[in-house]
Design a binder for these strands. Sequence first.
DNA 1: AATTAAAATTGTAATTATTACAAATTTATA
DNA 2: TATAAATTTGTAATAATTACAATTTTAATT
Lengths: 140, 140
Amino acid sequence: MNANIEVKNRLLEFGVKPSLQRMAIMAYLMDNLIHPNAETIFNHLYPLIPTLSKTTVYNTLKLLEEHGAILAINIDEKNVRYDADISEHAHFKCKRCGVVYDLPVKGIENLQIESPENLQITESRIYYKGYCEKCKKKMN
Amino acid sequence: MNANIEVKNRLLEFGVKPSLQRMAIMAYLMDNLIHPNAETIFNHLYPLIPTLSKTTVYNTLKLLEEHGAILAINIDEKNVRYDADISEHAHFKCKRCGVVYDLPVKGIENLQIESPENLQITESRIYYKGYCEKCKKKMN
DNA sequence: AATTAAAATTGTAATTATTACAAATTTATA
DNA sequence: TATAAATTTGTAATAATTACAATTTTAATT
């Protein structure tokens, strides 16, 4: 489990003032790299912080994302997933069981944008979808 | 404007039985590579097909996507965009004005998945977000 | 320490994209 | 032409997210 100080440092590093709720959400994401959505985060933290509101979870996730402290992963049409691993990496989603993995992909660092326009890129995402090994078998 | 026969062929090629509504939606997407959402498509076609239902637009877009005749672009958290260009290409979304472009990116074909698991990949997407030239200026 | 102001959290209601579903219509088949 | 199958339609339901006002907590000032 991530030490409290590391969680706090992540917030401070990205200019987010630490509070009980923000620390709890950040800690959960750092300890659980399973790309949870807001609901999952709330369900896990609610027993620990009985006053916690779902709105706070949504607000905080948005705040953390805007400050660059976490990534919003839009691989699922249904809801936004979040990731404390902010390094450039690809994601995979199984269309049958819905699980979202990190996917090691070679060559990402060589991608080169060739836009005629002078764009200011702030984020990039690489998403793959398909079927995981388990589901492939089940489908036969 | 795409000839009727080309639209029909696209549907047949992907095993979708052509109907008036399906042809109209497919034609609109082939003629308007602006990554429209269901609402935009409906608003454009409704005057031409006064009996058209929004549900049909949603149903048809899902059908076309499942058959591989179009791409669903999940770059926008709000709603799904659709693209008749089914070749592998990257997309850019401006976080200020919301426009979604195609983005020429070099090196996509060299990306190599290195999963320990035997995944069956059915689709891949590359998304960039940031600010377009116009919006960059406006923000100064 | 008490007072005031600012920031954060909370709860409820609203919004909105999408889907479920059953009825109606159209198309294909016998 | 009658019947079955497929498609379309309209309405209602679902569910993720946001708006917003009230409350609570934290920080700043006296």
